[in-house]
Simulated scan of single mutants.
Amino acid sequence: MNVFRSRPALRWLVPTAAAVVVIGGGAAAGTIVASAEPSLPERSAAQLLVDVQNAKVDGLSGTVVQTADLGLPSLPGLSGGAGGVDIMKLVAGSNTARVWYAGEDKARFALMGTLGETDVIRNGSDVWMWRSSDSSATHFKLPAPGKDHKPAALPTGVPSTPQEAADAALAAIDPSTAVSTTGAAKVAGRNAYELVLTPRDTASLVGQVRLAIDAKQHIPLGVDVYAKGANAPAFRVAFQQVSFDVPDAEQFNFNPPPGTKVNEPTKADIDKKRAEAEHSAAKRPEAPAGTKVVGEGWTAVVVAKLPAGDGAQRGQLDGLVNTLPKVSGAWGSGHLLSSALFSALVTDDGRVLVGAVAPEKLYEAAGK
């Protein structure tokens, strides 16, 4: 049985693709016994993974903070974004979110940006998406569930929390990964076990990934990603404060502030979106044309074609690439972006290579 299958009740509680960028791979965990503090019973790594899979809470609320320090240079054109979120903060800075959960049909996520707040609220059949930056809101009613209905998460693309980062890390567990435990940790004032995932391939820039798992509720409270040889995490997402009490029902009631532009899609709009989503889900995911993966696991390098773009978009992309250091070799020439956890190479012949590896690995892949 695959213990990493997501639980519907936790899917919406889940952060950011940054963790996925530095993690690869997929299968069985070891049976190393946790050397926990005396206050916590011993749990093996395999037992802790099953705990996470079977975790279920009736209520949850808290503050989640994501921080990153990847050692990247300042990149012009990456400041500001949807909802007032500074994209650079995902790789060199901090983001804060509040979450509330009271069952499948009561959930709220609030992302606090530099220029405003973005909220997604579900209360029964009502779903609201609100952005303070432009005083806009979208409201739609979910259709009544059929007899074969299975509880669903909030709409795809909703920002997430430690659960998603943990899911990405757990998916990396295969023979290329050593799994161990370091005993007890303290996150948001709560006792937690700590799982450590370490790449066996020394060519990876990732030193280890640490997961803090709540000792009582078995919910991931935090995920730290360390660069090789580093004493501080390069990427972290963790609860700063958390409560497992059921939030007050008032948290899920949303009344648009005065002056808010409210968009209410028609049933036809919703049916069209649902049909598109079902069609996409039925199709087997395929990599974009021209995309390939060189290597595997923690040292895999993704090779893709540079997006064509047009006009201002292409000019902006070229401008960003040209700010990066110029490099060349037997493989050709291009521009390099390197950080503590990953490297990216944009070649002059229109390719993009990315991996959690040193630049030399990218050059090697570019020559194939």
Rank of each mutant, 00 (worst) to 15 (best):
P288A: 09
G124P: 02
G93P: 05
D348V: 04
K147W: 02
R5F: 05
T347S: 15
P325M: 07
R236G: 10
T347H: 11
D248H: 02
N123S: 14
D248Y: 02
V50S: 12
R11M: 13
N253S: 03
T118G: 15
A29M: 09
S61F: 00
V3S: 07
D86P: 12
G71V: 11
I213A: 06
R210C: 09
G77L: 06
V21P: 01
V91L: 06
R11V: 14
L205Y: 05
L317V: 11
V85L: 14
A172C: 09
W100I: 11
S74W: 06
S328C: 09
A144R: 09
K292C: 00
T114N: 13
E278V: 13
M88T: 06
P265Q: 00
R108H: 01
S44L: 02
A227T: 14
A19V: 10
M112I: 15
K261I: 06
T138L: 12
A212E: 00
K228Q: 15
A249S: 13
S132A: 10
G329M: 08
D148I: 03
I213Q: 06
P73V: 00
P145D: 01
V262L: 13
G315W: 04
R7F: 02
N54A: 11
T16A: 10
K141S: 11
P41V: 02
T31K: 04
G81S: 13
T67S: 15
S180E: 12
A330N: 05
A168I: 08
E194W: 05
A365R: 01
R98W: 04
S44C: 02
E360M: 00
S160N: 04
R351H: 14
V301L: 07
A55L: 08
T156V: 10
V64L: 04
E264I: 14
S333F: 02
I32D: 03
A45V: 15
E286N: 09
S44I: 03
G295P: 03
G367L: 10
S133W: 08
V242C: 07
V352G: 05
A234C: 09
L317M: 14
D214Q: 04
A166L: 12
R274I: 11
V52C: 04
D174G: 10
V327I: 14
A165K: 00
A27K: 13
S133H: 07
V20Y: 01
L306G: 02
G26N: 05
K228W: 08
S74L: 10
F239A: 06
W12Y: 03
D310L: 06
P38G: 01
E360F: 00
L75C: 07
S280M: 06
D224Q: 15
P175R: 14
K326S: 14
A227K: 13
Q47F: 03
A107D: 08
P162Y: 06
V127I: 15
R210K: 15
A188I: 03
N54D: 07
D58E: 11
G222R: 08
L75H: 02
V21E: 11
A68Y: 08
S243K: 13
A330Q: 11
R11H: 09
F342N: 10
A168G: 05
N54I: 01
V65Q: 01
W298C: 08
G229C: 02
M112H: 10
Y193S: 12
S136R: 13
V209D: 00
S160D: 09
G26P: 07
A227F: 13
